[in-house]
Design a protein around this nucleic acid. Structure first.
Lengths: 350, 350
DNA sequence: GATTTGGATGACACCGGTTACCATTTCCCG
DNA sequence: CGGGAAATGGTAACCGGTGTCATCCAAATC
């Protein structure tokens, strides 16, 4: 029983995973040719290919991503880099990425980070470099940091930046076009007949804060309306800041009859502020949010908001990363769109 | 310029990543010894170790996870397998896992799945097998599926199951002990003086549904209270089911003065149902949720609920998986705990 | 019919580590 | 001081693929 094992012995244990050599031997070709089939090289005769594919199917062979990655010089991993604290955003984005990666052989590794940390850039670099990631998807606000993008370019790691406007060459950008969402909100409130309209922005560190506002303001102006300086206040995309700014706005005189909050969290805060001030939504004041996360339909009244197709955006981003963009889809599905619920109505005609 | 490169030429480009051979050469040892240092083998003289470590630090060397994984036979990846649709749960769990993995050299790959899919088990197996995952963390309700655990054992992939009760050998289990949370809710409502108490359970496919209920019921009984059959209804852990069941319960006569919902989503639905029925919370009816996700503090009134330490649980799970459990922490931090907010009060004394 | 041409295939080194096994050195003891 | 065990380092094979380049062969060209 001390006879050393040779390839002729067959599989070591019946449970051993087949490798490329097994396939090559059974198909009567070299491993290189099997490799060609795996990688869809055109230089394989159809007959040979079929024979190899049959063996692959029979043995249930799947190439080892690690070995492939080692030889190829890059791991078959795609990173999601984010610092957005909203769970709904993160999960939707992940689902979108996974949609796009399905069947590609890539896997998703997640990398939340803190842009405020002094070691943020170092951490990011070492993460991507050590893992030899194939590519990364950067989402706001990391995506808006030029240094992060530069690092990726440096390392030679593919990257796609998801941001509200273009900040890079087209192949590196997926634009969420938040400005259009701001316009939708403005159009809706203007159509309802509001004129005393207020806006609670997100923090300036997010590009979307600016875009949502300027789209909103722009569309108001086009309709002969104006966003008064006192009615344009700055929040932080948080529930608490929504309460604060809402309270302040609702104490003003004249009081705005409509408030557009830069995201749903702040809109929830504004609703709370209205309640505390004894005001009724939408009778006394209309409220519009942005994002259409789950909370929007759980609030009372349910929130009119601008839906952002995060999952769809995620799929696009990863498809671009892998160079498998499918252009057959309706481009409208990538744009923000208004969802009207109970929190908006015409201003009270008093 | 056609002279072939030899190791003596030094790094190919200044940008080339150092590898184990570079370290060995510069430290004047064999790569095997460097490998020993990397893997903390005790059979290296202190002096040698220091010299090697100095070179590693100087060159900023980090071993390639792919090469290491290939030779080792397992990838340095840990999978999170989940089918819980709640984004807050998923994100908290991910954060917990990442907490525990920090500095370990492992990375997190996420794998949402659909237990209802006919290919669920196959998909899971092929995912884990192909990637040669080091280990996986299974969360409810996947964690409650024996077949999933069996597959992991089969493949030889380490696994930890997060579930409300023990379903496996201790080394494979992290128990969330939801029963205790149910008890907390019962104690709170009993102390407030409620006697007409109702319960909306989650779906039977989740073990936690049963545990939360039986803990609740048990603690009520201990206090001489009783959960009437008509007051124990089955929901689906969804907002909509909370509205439905809430509506039905609040239409009963006598009407319950307190409702314990199996999670926050359903509690949000119950609040909505109360509003629609013209009832005030907590004056007419008290409501308690479970989970303490963000929504609990965004609702109106804010929700009294049982906090589940998901992030902490995630950290524990992954530490157990890696065999790096840190037992120094307060074991209480792993248990559900009551968070009292505005949605509960003594029953109206009419 | 000899020579190109280019598709199809294979041999072999290599990616960057680890393990198996052997060789050497050091240390301890009789 | 010799013998043997323990400590330490080296060599080669291997993990499972891919890249480079040579080779083979059939069809195309002259």
């Amino acid at each position: 029983m001390s006879k050393p094992r040779t390839p002729e012995d067959g599989p070591a244990e019946s449970r051993r995973r087949p490798n490329i050599n097994d396939i090559a031997r059974l198909a009567g070709v070299s491993k290189k040719t099997v490799s060609r089939v795996i990688n869809a090289s055109p230089f394989v005769r159809a007959e040979t290919r079929e024979r190899i594919e049959a063996v692959i199917a029979e043995l249930g062979y799947a190439p080892d991503p690690q070995a492939r990655g080692l030889a190829y010089g890059r791991a078959f991993l795609i990173g999601l880099v984010y610092d957005n604290p909203n769970p709904q955003y993160v999960v939707n984005m992940q689902l979108g990425l996974l949609d796009g990666m399905k069947g590609s052989g890539f896997e998703l590794v997640v990398h939340p980070c803190d842009r405020a940390s002094p070691t943020f850039l170092e951490d990011l670099r070492s993460f991507v470099e050590r893992q030899r990631l194939f590519g990364v998807v950067l989402t706001p606000s990391v995506s808006e940091d030029e240094r992060a993008a530069t690092i990726m370019a440096d390392i030679g790691c593919a990257y796609v930046r998801v941001a509200s406007v273009s900040l890079d060459r087209p192949e590196h950008m997926i634009e969420t076009r938040d400005r259009l969402g701001g316009r939708e909100a403005a159009a809706h409130l203007a159509e309802l007949g509001h004129t005393l309209i207020a806006f609670v922005s997100g923090p300036p560190s997010f590009r979307s804060s600016h875009e949502r506002r300027s789209g909103f303001e722009e569309a108001l102006e086009e309709r002969g309306l104006h966003l008064a300086k006192a009615f344009a206040v700055e929040g932080a995309y948080t529930y608490e800041s929504g309460i604060e700014r809402g309270r302040e706005l609702l104490a003003m005189s004249p009081r705005p009859t409509a408030i557009f909050a830069g995201n749903d969290e702040m809109a929830a805060g504004v609703l709370q502020a209205a309640r505390q001030a004894g005001l009724s939504v939408p009778d006394d004041v209309s409220v519009v949010g942005f994002d259409d996360f789950q909370i929007a339909s759980r609030l009372w009244p349910t929130l009119t908001t601008v839906r952002t197709p995060t999952r769809e955006i995620g799929r696009l981003a990863v498809e671009r990363l892998m160079g498998r963009e499918d252009d057959g889809r309706d481009p409208k599905s990538r744009l923000p769109s208004l969802v009207v619920r109970e929190s908006t109505a015409p201003p009270r005609g008093d």
